[in-house]
Computed example of a mutant assay.
Amino acid sequence: MWLNASEALSRLGSKPQSLYASVSRGRIRAKPDPLDSRRSLYREEDVDRLASRARGRRSSATVASEAISWGDPVLPSAISTVSEGRLYYRGRDAVELATTAMLEDIATLLWDGAWSLPASPPGPVAATPMAAALAALAARTAAGGASIGLGPWQLRNEAAGVLGGVADAMLGVGAGPLHVRLAHSLGRPDSAGVLRQALVLLADHELNASTFAARVAVSTGASLSAGALAGLATFTGPRHGTAASAVLALALDIGLLADRPGDGLREWLGEGRIVPGFGHRLYGRGDVRAEALLGAIDVPPAFATLALAGEDLLGERPNVDFALAALCATYDLPPHAPATIFALARTVGWLAHMLEQAGSGQLIRPRARYVGPAVGAA
């Protein structure tokens, strides 16, 4: 549901300037009013969430519960943030970095120090790059080791080994920049340039679900490979790292009704299916990563059609999952490509967060808010 400005301000109990500031910071999603382009509408759930915070009468249990679901940050981090609709890596604009940087450059920035990829022996053959990476990390984890007691230099060396192992598992053992190796492994060497940008833009994104899982694992003293395994396992969920595959299926479906894209999308919605690839809570004015990637490719007609239909019916702009799917369709990459690209990139971010967590020496141990039968009831 969407609210007009008067309704939003009434619920917030604030001045218009505060409402506009919340929109610019991505706390409240907004879209143009279809009946009056000079006005905006505001997402009801975002307004109500901020209103509940402002009332200031919540218990500590409520605060903690809300923080778990897109609430206030629950861990201090100097690695990345989304601020006023832009993504920053250690204070530097990720979109600007993506114009020239390689994933290796981003690892140096996020890991806060120099490193180098070690040579790795060939690993076992797996059905997909994702399966190969999971197997490689599991084997490395089973070999033992811990993150506790290691200094920054030792941790960075270990991080380089984990990244190298994941890259070799997904791309095959080789040398050269990761984006070049990735392009060759996908059978499209000509895609290396845009893959470089994608890897940079996908390297990290604050404290998402997989990153949190990786940090929790390492906070116990587990090895970096164990943390990466936890992150990658969490990443495989359809609401996280594999969402781009659902966008590909939707684009194909809508593409069959290119003359009436709205009808195709309404049919999809009518079947009770969630529309993937649109909107992001941290970007009130559109996902800047998606904008950068879509601007770097010739968007296929089916995706252009879907983008227009989605914006019209949902009031949301394409997000990075949409852009990644469009990129893969543009270069006719294999089905596993979206997850492979995303996971390889995000491994750098997971490792950065694990290095930070290991350095803090803190154990992440939330409490549960019990909602079962009364304790001690007869």
Rank of each mutant, 00 (worst) to 15 (best):
R260H: 11
G221Y: 04
A169D: 07
G376F: 06
P121Q: 08
S77M: 09
H240Y: 04
I68W: 12
G13K: 05
A337N: 09
A192P: 01
A192I: 09
R43F: 14
K15A: 15
W268P: 01
A167C: 11
L355M: 11
A142M: 13
R43P: 00
R367N: 05
D298K: 02
I28A: 13
Q154V: 01
A5G: 06
D33V: 09
A132T: 08
L314R: 05
G272D: 00
A251V: 01
V82C: 08
D259I: 02
P338Y: 08
L110Q: 11
D33R: 11
I28H: 12
R273T: 02
T211E: 13
R90Y: 06
D168R: 01
G310W: 11
A233D: 01
A304H: 06
G262L: 07
P318D: 11
V180F: 00
G151K: 04
E45R: 14
R25L: 11
I68C: 07
L229T: 07
R49W: 08
I148R: 14
E311H: 10
G279K: 01
L171W: 03
A159L: 11
W268V: 03
T128I: 08
S116Y: 06
L250A: 03
A135R: 12
A146D: 03
R260A: 14
P301A: 11
V162S: 01
L186M: 14
A368M: 09
L224K: 04
Y42S: 06
L324T: 13
A101P: 02
L19H: 11
V375M: 09
R266A: 10
V200Q: 05
E267N: 10
A136C: 05
L229M: 06
L232S: 03
I68R: 15
L252E: 15
S24K: 12
E84W: 04
A352K: 07
T108I: 07
A142T: 07
G164T: 09
N208C: 10
S120A: 13
G151P: 03
L75Q: 14
L282I: 08
L313Q: 15
V23Q: 07
G372L: 07
A98I: 10
R140L: 10
